[in-house]
Design a protein around this nucleic acid. Structure first.
Length: 722
DNA sequence: AGCACGCCGACT
DNA sequence: GTCGGCGTGCTC
């Protein structure tokens, strides 16, 4: 009898063998197996003749989940991810599944009603006015005899069930049980392509059907999305599926709406964070069956099985959210490239500010490098540096910024004041004894939140009441040092009494739908000055916004991280791109005490290529990635000494295998203590991927031996932050 | 990860 | 005498 080699969600780097149990298993099947005294869902990775343990220890597979097995390509991706990131295969396999499928009680999704057009509906599409967009989309969704599922119909519009019921009464639509199917895809006309866009579409289009990695390097507003849409149309015409990945921010719903209006009727599975588990599972199954023609999602969607995948797009490929920061620390962007190579299809990495890694790949010819330099939507913003060395800003705002804000207010235009720091003041100190508020569980200062009258730790979430007096000396004069968005909001409200100031950060958008309401307020002209963090920087189009003031970017320049400059540039370029997207020219003011810093000079010229070239030269001479390959062994424990003991032992053991690989001394993490746990890390560096992988394969299995109790450790391959 | 087993400290 | 702390080891 066949032996099923099953991956289970346990933190050990192995599989478990089971007897087939007469179920006729195939590889990729999702199965329920007895495990210890529990039952677990597992993935059959392969079938074997001989078990790896004595036959007497084998147990039977209990049942097969009522879903199609994972295709071989999906298993290969899981295997690669497990091997490359050195994470237990079972945990990779199971985390790639929607949680509903990880439950042993999963009973299958009940078949939904499908709708098809009857012969009596002939000509209905022509008779329906173009402005009846819901009806048009529903008709497009049933074109060519396609069976439209009830769930997808509801995604097209909440009004869909009513329309379909009415058409059923008219005899134009009838219900159809069984599989849903996809309509032939048609794209609604969009804005005319520029020469650059057309050239990009043609160049990438020529690569369909073969592995063709492309870096689409296009400034904000240059119309990358339009290029994506044309490529998607191209793939759909070939009846292929498309995976479109986006960073982990709430942009998916907007993109979904835009997509649906351009591709009416096309089956779209959008995986956004707010999705209920049943919805996520249903969309996953639609992708698996091939019914979903396009999948839009964040990093996890790279694992969505798509049998006819023909194109992968990674939008804003430089975005750090593509790297998972716990568990399996994979880079969805890098896995997307692997996926494309495996499936022999094109992969498009799009960004206005590519990651240095991708830029290097493009420069060295591994990726095709395509540029979109013109900006059809508007002229480029004018970026100016405001030197604040001689005239210190009043409450964080320089005269130039105040004047510029004033001018926008008088013209009825919007402004954005960007400060990447939440709260009222980043620290609270005593004017008499110098005491400052620190978190009891972390090596970090507590941030003063004025409205809540609280001190908050931004690392562990700890919160305490704002003290009335200094706990050390009793002095009542406690002062907030530095600027947070709350304080800036207050300053702006005081300085511009008639202006409507709106603060947008994690604190004001915590409530569900709060962010959507704020966005509507901004677009609907309900705000004059926006104060915000990072959240505001990405992808949002605010047509009335003509001024961006960046008030304190200098902090990042003090960072020890060699990626700090790259990230700062990317972030500032990103915020700057918010200014003047419509018909009005934008202006960007940047307050700094280092006006001649290369980051700011390149930013003013809006010359990312020149900046990236300089960074690459620097990285090359200093021996940093992408010219070397890194992995970090991170460890943490409540006991600082056991962390050190563990890492020192690891370094000693590693030295024996370090063939061309450099092992650095263990160092404390940037924030040494978080929630009472001490963290430290050990950097491993190698001249090539292969050497690094060889070392990790030999080294990591040795770490369990002699590990002090209660030390948790993890390996991070290609780390983004050290 | 869970969950058992097992070996030492303070309680009805 | 046993309840319970968490170190150790196993799960096909």
């Amino acid at each position: 009898m066949a032996i099923a080699r099953v991956a289970l969600d346990v933190p050990v780097p192995m599989t478990f063998d089971y007897r087939d149990g007469g179920l006729g298993l195939v590889s990729g099947a999702l199965v329920v197996v007895p495990f210890g005294r529990r039952r677990q869902v597992g993935v059959v990775l392969e079938l074997a003749q001989q078990p790896l343990v004595e036959r007497a220890r084998l147990r039977d597979v209990e049942r097969v989940l009522p879903v199609e097995p994972l295709p071989a390509e999906a298993l290969a991706l899981i295997q690669f991810c497990s091997d490359y990131y050195h994470h237990p295969i079972g945990q990779v396999a199971l985390s790639a599944l929607p949680t509903a499928l990880r439950r042993s009680a999963f009973a299958g999704v009940r078949g939904e009603v499908g709708y098809v057009l009857t012969p009596a509906a002939a000509g209905l599409e022509q008779r329906t006015p173009a402005r009846a967009s819901v009806m048009q989309a529903l008709l497009a969704a049933m074109r060519g005899g396609a069976v439209l599922g009830a769930a997808e119909a509801r995604r097209i519009s909440p009004r869909a069930p009513g329309v379909l019921r009415e058409w059923q009464e008219q005899g134009w639509v009838e219900e159809r049980q069984g599989e849903v199917s996809s309509p032939p895809a048609t794209m609604q006309p969009g804005p005319p392509l520029t020469d650059e866009q057309r050239a990009a579409v043609e160049r990438i289009g020529a690569g369909f059907g073969s592995f063709a990695p492309v870096l689409l390097d296009g400034i904000t507003g240059s119309g990358k999305t339009e290029v994506y849409f044309h490529l998607i149309a191209h793939a759909l015409a070939r009846t292929e599926q498309v995976l479109l990945m986006v960073p982990e921010i709430n942009l998916t719903p907007q993109l979904e709406a835009r997509f649906r209006s351009r591709f009416p009727g096309v089956r779209l599975a959008a995986m956004h964070s707010g999705l209920a588990e049943a919805g996520r599972c249903q969309r996953w199954l639609e992708a698996r069956s091939g019914a979903a023609q396009v999948v839009i999602g964040t990093r996890l969607s790279v694992f969505t099985p798509m049998p006819r995948l023909g194109l992968v797009i990674v939008d804003e490929e430089h975005d750090a959210s593509y790297k998972q920061q716990d568990g399996v620390r994979y880079s969805a962007r890098d896995l997307a490239v692997f996926l494309a190579q495996q499936r022999r299809i094109p992969v498009v990495l799009g960004s206005a500010t590519p990651s240095i890694e991708s830029y290097h790949n493009a420069r060295s010819g591994r990726f095709v490098h395509l540029h979109l330099r013109s900006r059809p939507a508007a002229s480029r913003p004018d970026i100016r540096v405001v030197d604040v060395r001689d005239v210190p800003p009043q409450h964080g705002l320089s005269g130039a910024v105040v004047d510029a804000l004033d001018a926008r207010l008088r013209r009825g235009e919007q402004s954005l004041v960007f400060l990447n720091r939440r709260g009222y003041a980043p620290s609270l100190t005593c004017s008499a004894c110098g005491w400052s508020a620190e978190c009891s569980r972390c090596s970090a200062r507590l941030v003063w939140h004025l409205r809540e009258a609280a001190l908050r730790c931004h690392y562990c979430g700890h919160e305490e009441a704002m003290p009335a007096a200094c706990p050390a000396c009793g002095n009542q004069d406690l002062r907030g040092l530095g600027q947070g968005t709350q304080r800036l909001e207050q300053t702006l409200a005081a300085r511009f009494p008639g202006a409507r100031v709106l603060r947008i950060d994690r604190d004001t958008t915590r409530r569900k739908h709060a962010w959507r309401a704020m966005r509507e307020q901004i677009v609907g002209d309900g705000a004059d000055i926006l104060v915000g963090t990072q959240m505001l920087a990405k992808g949002h189009d605010f047509p009335k916004l003509t001024l961006v003031a960046i008030v304190n970017p200098d902090n990042a320049l003090y960072s020890a991280d060699f990626r700090a400059a790259e990230r700062l540039f990317q972030q500032l370029m990103q915020v700057a791109g918010r200014a003047g997207r419509a018909d009005r020219a934008g202006e960007v003011l940047l307050q700094t005490r280092f006006p001649a810093h290369p980051v700011y000079e390149a930013l003013q010229r809006q010359d990312y290529s020149g900046f990236a070239d300089a960074l690459l030269a620097e990285r090359k001479s200093a021996g940093f990635p992408p010219f070397v390959y890194q992995a970090v062994l991170r460890a943490e424990s409540v006991s600082p000494s056991s962390v050190t003991t563990f890492l020192e032992a690891a370094a000693r053991v590693g030295a024996g295998h370090a063939d061309g690989v450099t092992l650095y001394d263990p160092v404390p993490a940037a924030v040494e203590r978080v929630a009472g746990h001490f963290r430290a890390q050990l950097l491993v560096q190698a001249p090539g991927r292969a050497a690094l992988q060889r070392f990790l394969r030999a080294w990591l299995p040795l770490l369990a031996e002699g590990k002090p109790a209660r030390v948790r450790w993890a390996i991070d391959v290609d780390p983004l932050d050290l």
